[in-house]
Design a protein around this nucleic acid. Structure first.
Lengths: 148, 148
DNA sequence: GTTGACCCTGTATCCAGCTACAGGGTGTAG
DNA sequence: CTACACCCTGTAGCTGGATACAGGGTCAAC
C-alpha cells in the first residue's frame, strides 16, 4: 500500500489483471470508455486501480448483452456526479426495465432447458417440446413443435 | 399435418412477421439456422409457420446474448429427436449453468441500478456507489469509487 | 404486353469490437 | 554499450452479423 488506493499499473499489467488484450485498452480509450490515463515522462500510460474496476465493469456488462455504447452511457451516468439527477433516474429506470426483461427471458429459457434436462434422462422418449414452450412463453402461443 | 398448421409464407411476409429483414432469411439459411425451405415451380422459397417460431426463438436467444453458433446448437439439440440423449443433457446442462450465471449477474446489476434510482431521488447527494457495488459483487471488493 | 412488385443468385459493403502490424522510442540488466 | 522487453502512434485486417447491390427471372393487374 504505497499510493493509497491507487498503485500505478502498466499497460500490460492492467490488461492482464482485467483479462483483456493490451491493445484493447487503447481501443477503449479511443471509444471514451476509459478516459485518458496519466502519462509518465516518456509518454507511457499510467493506470490506476480504479481503471481496473472500470474494466471489470465493462466486461461484465458486455457479458450481459450491453454494447460498448450502452456501457459508456452507464459509466457516464454512475461515474459523473455532475450528471443531472433527472437524467440519472430516467436512464437508470429504462435500463432497469431492460434488465428485468432480460431476466424474465432468461428464466423462461432456464425453465425450458431445465425441463429438457429433466425430461431427457438419457433414455426413453423426449417428452414435451421445450423450445416451443420457450417461444410460446415469449409472445406467440401453441403449435409449431417440430420434433416428434 | 402439413398444410393445416402451416400456411405458406412468402419471403418478405415471413421476414415482416418475424421482424427481420428479408435478406436475413437467406443469411440464416446459409448459416444453417433455418434449413432449406421448400420451393415453388419457379424456385421461390416457401416458408412454414414453424419457420416463424424458429425465427422468433433465434431473435430472443440473440437478445439473451447467445451467438448464432450457440443458437444453431440449441436448435439442433432441441429440434432433432435423433440427438444422442447424453449430448442433449450435457449441452443443456452447460447452457443452464451459463444462463443461471447470467441471471445472477443481471440481478446484481438490477440491484445496483435499482439502488441508483432509489438513492438519486432527483435532488440531494448521490449516496453510495452502485457501480462499485456491482463490480464488488462480481469479484473484486472495496474502494474505487470515482464519483463524489 | 408492359408495368411493378415480387423472387432468384452471387458478391460487395457495413458496423461493432477487437487484434495485429509497422516503424520508432525507452529503460534496465548484464 | 547493447540486448531485449516494453512503450508509443497510426493504420490495416479480422470475425460476426447482417445489409445492399447487380443483373436477371416471374407473374398478376391493368
Amino acid at each position: 500500500m504505497k499510493e493509497k488506493t491507487t498503485p500505478a499499473w502498466t499497460r500490460t499489467a492492467l490488461a492482464k489483471a482485467a483479462g483483456v488484450g493490451a491493445e484493447t485498452l487503447r481501443f477503449y480509450e479511443q471509444k471514451g470508455l476509459l478516459g485518458e490515463p496519466a502519462r509518465n515522462a516518456s509518454g507511457y500510460r499510467i493506470y490506476q486501480t480504479s481503471d481496473l474496476d472500470r474494466l471489470k465493469f465493462i466486461r461484465r456488462s458486455q457479458e450481459l448483452g450491453f454494447s460498448l455504447q450502452d456501457i459508456a452511457q452507464l459509466l457516464e451516468l454512475t461515474g459523473n456526479i455532475r450528471t443531472p439527477r433527472k437524467k440519472v433516474r430516467e436512464f437508470a429506470s429504462a435500463r432497469l426495465e431492460l434488465i428485468r426483461g432480460k431476466i424474465r427471458d432468461l428464466r423462461a429459457m432456464e425453465r425450458a432447458l431445465g425441463k429438457l434436462v429433466t425430461d431427457c434422462d438419457g433414455r426413453g422418449a423426449m417428452k414435451g417440446c421445450p423450445i416451443v414452450e420457450f417461444v410460446a412463453g415469449g409472445s406467440s402461443n401453441e403449435k409449431g413443435c417440430r420434433h416428434e
